[in-house]
Design a protein around this nucleic acid. Sequence first.
DNA 1: CGGTGAGTTGAATGTATTCAATGGTAGTGG
DNA 2: CCACTACCATTGAATACATTCAACTCACCG
Lengths: 239, 239
Amino acid sequence: MMTSHYRPPCQACTSCDTRRMAVCSALQDDEVAELERAMSFVRLESNTSLVEEGEPRRRVYTLTSGLLRLSLALPDGRRQITGFLMPGDYLGLADDEIYAQTAEAVVPSGLCSFSVRDMDRLMERYPRLRDRLHLMTRAALRQARETQMILGRLAPSEKVASFLLHMSNRAAAYGRPESPVPLPMTRTDIADYLGLTIETVSRTFTKLKTQGLIRLPDPHSVEIVDKSRLAVVAGLTVH
Amino acid sequence: MMTSHYRPPCQACTSCDTRRMAVCSALQDDEVAELERAMSFVRLESNTSLVEEGEPRRRVYTLTSGLLRLSLALPDGRRQITGFLMPGDYLGLADDEIYAQTAEAVVPSGLCSFSVRDMDRLMERYPRLRDRLHLMTRAALRQARETQMILGRLAPSEKVASFLLHMSNRAAAYGRPESPVPLPMTRTDIADYLGLTIETVSRTFTKLKTQGLIRLPDPHSVEIVDKSRLAVVAGLTVH
DNA sequence: CGGTGAGTTGAATGTATTCAATGGTAGTGG
DNA sequence: CCACTACCATTGAATACATTCAACTCACCG
């Protein structure tokens, strides 16, 4: 696990630009100072894992920059990516005593880190923090079920189209442009997220490009040309 | 919505046999009495819906008997069942202001019902109740992610095998025999849960039967003949 | 300049789906 | 009591389509 621990590179939580997205938005400036005292900062290189499925859960995290993938593995090596974590997202929502999934950095990432003990104490002291965490857990559960639908009932083109729209919406939620959408993860990651093979993902991108719905300046950025037609392909609107 | 409301047919919460499975296990006998005062009982006929995706969430429930299916629907009618609720399970874990999915009875079912207002008040008063609910939400999230793996990365035989083992384990958790496993839901329900067609589900059952792994006394009960080989088929053990 | 990893594309293969027919069971009404 | 209907489950045959196997390109790095 190639991580290095040091004090945050950001000035302070009060001036942190991911705060409005994260669990700490539940706290006021003076309260967040206490959170800050319990916090340490972690930097993570690409393709290194922060937590491993089955490990005891001793720390929880808030992602401040970069991108993480959460995944489950089968004994024979098959992998399912259950989701991607973006800045402001919390790592450790689903876990109890042990981590239920592996978290790895897709690109160099930074995280605020807290011991479970400290976080429990803080939640005890600031109920709004606890409530916010519960709220985020419920949202994650709704998201997971939405993904079940995508995995179980959508055709490959629909999967890829809805994935692109989803990523576009998330980018917009973080104040970034809706298009072009950056896709820092590999085709293999996308395949393991959508329940497809890498070849099918690649072919589907090409097909959407040929149909004039998207453009692919490079493999890791997608320009959405026709959002409404893409939504039709995604199966989200009645044709 | 064919429901009828009346006082519970059971003597009292203190003698309720699903209590140990449900959220109310967090409360002591004297505390559960207050829960009971806020409670009303609902009986639900087969194939009637209790809550509908998109409706405002005004009440929450604990299933005491029967079986419910939770589902999401696509505009064109395709359906994904995200899970089945068994006695002791809580309805409303993921939802916020509105219900995120539809809940329907698979067989005649009974539920304890609470207004969201009452439940919020009770959670405020009994933190262990709130903590238990949060615990159940996290468990549901882990379950949903496990299901993502099943939907995205397992072959049809593996899906059906792991579904049977899952149902068997749940039956055992409720103190019922591991085998034969009752499957009150239709093949269509199973297909919509596993991301398959009804024909593929049927053929897979037949195949597992032919291989001597299960027996099918009737379409709604499955006898598990060889649990370990079934686990191999499910992809859960290295061959 | 060779080497590696990621992505794309082509051809074949396998397999789940689709379309269709049949059997079984339960409920309804004559 | 017995047709008659409706629904569910199963099975067969043809089809469609994602996967598999393989080749090739490209960019990046040593």
